[in-house]
């Protein structure tokens, strides 16, 4: 569904991504894991066309999408849940959801998508008049996901859904994400710092470090974690005690 080939992104003189390749099939959950500064968020921003790649190509459902405007990418059915949630804290829950459809004018469909989001997250319906800043962290994450769903996407990228949340709440967030795949047939690309968490949720795992994909694999084959550890840190678990210079 989404093919990323030899993607390169630079911030000025700094090269953030040097030749990233992803191949995500329809209906799967793909996870990108990697340490800070590996280029995970950059990859997602390039996919939603907020950043312009310097080289390489991104195609979605057979169509090349790099170079199109972010709004148009959204219209093709790619939706992004940004890192740190970025909800509008003093707007009500309902208003937060409506901003997600600012670019659309089909009232009927908007209403239908709204009802569907509320059905997925009943808590948002109960609190629709409350200001979003009063929601708990987990609820805010649900709201951010709900807002992304309002554009009725086929493909969703989620940047660090576990950021700043208690482990129990993170479990719940992942349950919701897996549910979205089951019930809506959504294809998901999740960026995650914790490889353990990613191995549990993902079908396909990508380990990104220093702007390149170090490892691509079927999550089922990587469950022991050793290969992932090596790709993630650049050395294997057996050497853990040694000082790396």
């Amino acid at each position: 569904m989404l093919e990323v080939k030899d993607l390169e992104v630079r911030y000025g003189r700094l090269t953030a991504l040097r030749g990233v390749n992803l191949s995500i099939k329809e209906g799967e959950i793909a996870c990108i894991v990697g340490p800070n500064g590996a280029g995970k968020s950059t990859t997602l921003l390039a996919i939603s066309s907020v950043l312009t790649p310097t080289a390489g190509s991104i195609s979605f459902a057979g169509r090349q999408i790099n170079g199109t405007r972010p709004e148009d990418v959204a219209r093709l059915g790619i939706s992004q849940v940004p890192e740190g949630r970025h909800i509008f804290t003093s707007l009500s829950v309902e208003e937060n959801l409506r901003v997600g459809t600012a670019t659309r004018s089909d009232k009927e469909e908007m209403k239908r998508d709204y009802d569907r989001v509320i059905e997925t997250f009943p808590i948002l319906g109960e609190r629709r008049r409350q200001s979003a800043g009063k929601l708990s962290g987990g609820e805010q994450q649900m709201l951010a996901i709900g807002r992304a769903l309002m554009t009725n996407p086929r493909f969703m990228t989620i940047d660090e859904p576990s950021l700043g949340l208690a482990p129990k709440i993170v479990d719940r967030v992942y349950e919701v994400l897996i549910d979205l795949r089951e019930k809506r047939g959504l294809t998901l690309l999740i960026v995650e710092q914790s490889s353990e968490r990613a191995l549990k949720a993902a079908d396909t795992l990508y380990v990104l470090r220093n702007g390149t994909i170090q490892l691509t694999g079927n999550a089922a084959d990587l469950q022991d974690g050793k290969a992932v550890h090596k790709a993630y840190f650049g050395f294997s678990e057996d050497h853990e005690g040694e000082v790396m210079i």
Partner: peptide
């Protein structure tokens, strides 16, 4: 209105509002 809502969203978080197509 949707115009006022879009503007209030940009008041809260300009980056996120732009990302939502405002």
């Amino acid at each position: 209105s949707k115009y006022g809502l879009a503007l209030r969203a940009s008041r809260e978080d300009e980056v996120a509002a732009k990302a939502a197509g405002v």
